[in-house]
Design a protein around this nucleic acid. Structure first.
Lengths: 151, 151
DNA sequence: CATAATATCCCATGATATCCCAAATATATA
DNA sequence: TATATATTTGGGATATCATGGGATATTATG
């Protein structure tokens, strides 16, 4: 399974293209689709991204939920309806659609932030503010330590 | 599982390269990624380091937490977002990024400190001060006995 | 069907990291 | 003490990566 780490800030050019960081591309190599899956985060002004394998796994999990249940409706509407499949060009760039750009308030540059099995794209300054907040939360609720000390 | 012992002080050259101690490299050999994972310590002005296997294990543990929970967000932002993947060159050196160097106030040389399953990188003088403090704390709070008798 | 808008392909460039070889230093061996 | 071996350190050559832009192909639209 892929492991996305670190934070990279890349420019968006006049054509709307932005390089996916090379280490991320390496994690995504060998998949059936050469590119990423991108969908709006409903918790933050950010774009959730992953490889096609992650989406397929998610799809299987959702498949176990009853087709005509409200849960199925909510999940599929949230996860699949707004998900975009963005292919790499020869240089490993993608084009972020207008809907995702405006959702994350991204204009001239984009911050790619690793979250383990997935990664996210943020407006750089918004990400910095969020990181400070998240670290505070993790410390206050003692989250980091319990996971690390856990064998 | 890797075991990192002892302390080594190595120079940082003009290109920002520094040798990872040979015994540490031996502990890390055979892993899928030839290099180290490095992230800022939020407790000390130091850099926490480990092999990719340690990070993968962490990722799996975090993967069990609900993907869209606050706990997942806080943890991944703290653990993965600032973690760097630093590969060895042919001579077993890494390049420490500016962000980590400034976090640990490191300039011309770096101290590698074994901490068991992980190791840390410190500014050498800061490490000496910390060691004295840590030894005092251990004695005062009688930590050695309680931790060892545990389990 | 024609035309415009948009995306894709291809190549160029500067900055940076990586590779490769060699010298210097430290550690072990005879 | 002298020699051999491993490790750290140094520096030039090479490759990779992010970025930019022209040319071509694809798609949408009137």
């Amino acid at each position: 399974m892929a492991l996305f780490l670190d934070t990279f800030i890349n420019k968006i050019d006049k054509k709307g293209r932005v390089s996916v960081p090379a280490p991320y591309r390496l994690s995504l190599s060998g998949l059936s689709f050469q590119g990423i899956i991108a969908l709006p985060s409903f918790k933050n002004k950010a774009i959730i991204c992953a490889g096609i394998d992650w989406m397929e796994k998610l799809s299987q999990q959702v498949g176990r939920v009853d087709l005509f249940s409200d849960a199925h409706d909510d999940l599929t509407a949230t996860l699949f309806a707004d998900a975009k499949q963005l292919g790499f060009d020869g240089e490993g760039r993608i084009i972020l659609p207008e809907s995702l750009l405006s959702h994350a308030h991204i204009q001239e540059s984009a911050a790619f932030v690793g979250r383990g099995q997935i990664f996210e794209i943020w407006q750089p300054e918004a990400l910095e503010k969020y990181k400070i907040f998240a670290r505070k939360q993790a410390l206050e609720k003692n989250r980091t330590l319990s996971v690390i000390s856990d064998k």
